[in-house]
């Protein structure tokens, strides 16, 4: 592995690094404790994650729950053909990708920025207060978030809609109905609901920063900005990178409930994504097979994205997932 890129402390690991290949038996014996520690977790993954993966085969069947894996009819690639050649594929992919891009631009960095800002806050009381408030929305269901959104943005009685109208003037904008406002509203909802929660992981990473490093930086005459740039940021960079890579695997996933609740006849053309479409298919045709086919497609894309991002991270000199 790329030892030349690794941070210094890895180089400092003395004993176990052996360049010569070990025989499996020697390795097993030598690292028996480590292997033993992996075992329960590995068993979990095999039993609860890999055993059910047999269910992925239903993507190639017309699965009927009662008939089961054996009884359902094999249809080969029918569902994939339907997915890729269906009249809606382009639109679904486009909408999904645009929402993914918006996630990358807004939803992913927001918690990092807020965590860093919180970190610079010197009033302990204020910091704790802000922290404990902004993460509460995570606990509200999308149903509640949607009803709050309608409450605030409705063209008839929305408080915020009214406020904006009062300031900007002109004709009243129906934020929750019009197609062009769909994406901004979704982004706003996501930011509101998950930014605070997302900061937790970065705050945990920031809590781990070695205070001595700040000391050393100060002795070197570094100001506040340079301390941030040379100590704080490098300290949470690995976390950011790992989060970025892992999140990339879910880029094609949307929060079904969120989108479904905000969809209406006027904005469906921009609102429909794979996850909502699968739901409609489910209503009319039971669609387990189709849903699984879509899941497989998204999974393959997700794997490519994860490993692609991981590769890119390494190219850029970061540690990546491994």
């Amino acid at each position: 592995m790329a030892t030349d890129l690794a941070p210094p402390e890895v180089k400092a690991v003395p004993a176990p690094v052996r360049r010569t290949r070990m025989s499996p038996r020697t390795a097993l014996l030598r690292y028996r404790w480590l292997y033993l520690m992996v075992l329960p977790g590995l068993a979990y993954f095999l039993v609860f994650k890999y055993l059910p993966m047999r269910g992925l085969t239903i993507a190639f069947q017309d699965f009927v729950p009662f008939l089961g894996y054996e009884g359902s009819q094999w249809v080969g690639l029918k569902h994939f053909e339907e997915l890729f050649t269906g009249p809606d594929f382009g639109r679904l992919l486009g909408n999904t990708l645009i929402l993914a891009a918006l996630t990358i631009v807004f939803a992913f960095p927001a918690p990092i920025v807020v965590a860093l800002l919180l970190n610079e806050l010197r009033l302990g009381v204020l910091k704790r207060a802000v922290q404990s408030l902004i993460y509460i929305p995570h606990f509200l269901s999308w149903t509640i978030v949607a009803s709050l959104t309608y409450l605030l943005f409705s063209v008839d009685y929305g408080v915020i809609a009214g406020l904006v109208h009062g300031v900007v003037g002109g004709t009243r904008v129906d934020y929750v109905a019009q197609a062009e406002w769909f994406r901004p509203v979704i982004v706003l909802q996501t930011l509101w609901k998950s930014t605070g929660w997302g900061t937790i992981i970065y705050l945990a990473a920031l809590a781990g920063v070695n205070a001595d490093l700040y000391e050393a930086a100060r002795i070197d005459g570094a100001g506040r900005w340079r301390q941030f740039w040379h100590v704080t940021l490098p300290a949470i960079r690995p976390t950011i990178v790992v989060m970025a890579i892992l999140t990339s695997g879910h880029l094609l996933d949307n929060s079904f409930e969120q989108i479904w609740l905000m969809t209406n006849s006027l904005n469906r053309s921009v609102a429909d994504v794979f996850d909502t479409y699968v739901y409609y298919v489910g209503i009319t045709q039971g669609g387990y097979s189709y849903a699984t086919a879509v899941g497989l497609f998204k999974g393959v894309a997700g794997v490519l994205l994860i490993f692609g991002c991981n590769w890119l991270a390494k190219r850029l000199g970061q540690r990546g997932l491994f």
Binding site: F48, P52, Y288
Partner: peptide, 17 residues
């Protein structure tokens, strides 16, 4: 492990397990 982040067997297969 990473594979299971993106692939899952789904509702019914997990139920059966």
């Amino acid at each position: 492990v990473i594979f299971t982040i993106v692939f899952s067997g789904g509702l019914i297969p997990t139920y059966l397990v």
